[in-house]
Each structure stands twice: as structure tokens, then as C-alpha cells.
């Protein structure tokens, strides 16, 4: 079960500058664990206290995983995982 993961600029320091990398896993949790194995340090940028970090939005195919089970979201074979920086501010 392999997915293509799109990496935002801010996290490309972990992927040697690559915009897209492959990762194995059938859930987002497994995909992130596989990312961490190949790109150490990236997990801490995505997950905090067992949940997705508020600074990132993660999408499996076209759906925001916050509406699709969070870290338990299913990742289909040949699926896409897109990581975007959250955009917010004001206080």
C-alpha cells in the first residue's frame, strides 16, 4: 500500500528538498510512521499529543482528514496525501 505525499516548503528540509515522496501505509498514522522512518524529524512537525498539529492541514485524496477520522483516516493504495500549512492569525 503506497501513497504519494506532497510536502510543503517548510517541511522539505526533512525530504532533501523533494516536493513529493512515497510512503507506505493503509492509514494516515501508518503513512506518517513510514515517513518518519525515511525522513527523521518530520513526525514531530505533523503530530503532537497523538493528534494532528494545529499548524498543518492534511488531506487524503481530496478530503481534509479532520473530517475523515484524523490519524485513523484510511489511505487507499496509490492514494495521495497532501500536507499544507494552516493559515491563520489575528490574536
Amino acid at each position: 500500500m503506497s501513497a504519494t505525499v506532497s510536502i510543503p516548503t517548510i517541511l522539505r528540509t526533512h525530504t532533501g528538498g523533494e516536493k513529493q515522496v512515497k510512503a507506505e501505509g493503509s492509514t494516515l498514522q501508518e503513512v506518517i510512521a513510514d515517513l518518519e522512518a525515511n525522513h527523521p524529524g518530520i513526525k514531530d512537525r505533523l503530530v503532537t499529543d497523538g493528534a494532528l498539529h494545529r499548524f498543518v492541514n492534511v488531506y487524503v485524496n481530496d478530503e481534509d482528514v479532520r473530517f475523515a477520522g484524523g490519524l485513523d483516516a484510511q489511505v487507499p493504495d496509490n492514494g495521495t496525501v497532501t500536507i499544507l500549512p494552516a493559515v491563520a492569525g489575528g490574536r
Binding site: 492541514n57 481534509d64 497532501t82 499544507l84 494552516a86 493559515v87 491563520a88
Partner: peptide, 27 residues
């Protein structure tokens, strides 16, 4: 223009991109 998805009833005024809309624009 992006939808401000921050809670309009919250104290003060902040902004947050709607995450689904952000993805559609990104794509």
C-alpha cells in the same frame, strides 16, 4: 478571497482559512 473560518462568535476577531477551500485553491 478566502472564507474566514474562525469562529465568528469568539471574542475578538481572528482569521483562519477554511481548510477545504484552501485545498481546492491549492489544487
Amino acid at each position: 478571497p478566502m472564507t474566514n473560518a474562525d469562529d465568528p462568535d469568539a471574542q475578538g476577531s481572528d482569521y483562519r482559512f477554511d481548510s477545504r477551500e484552501q485545498f481546492a485553491v491549492y489544487k
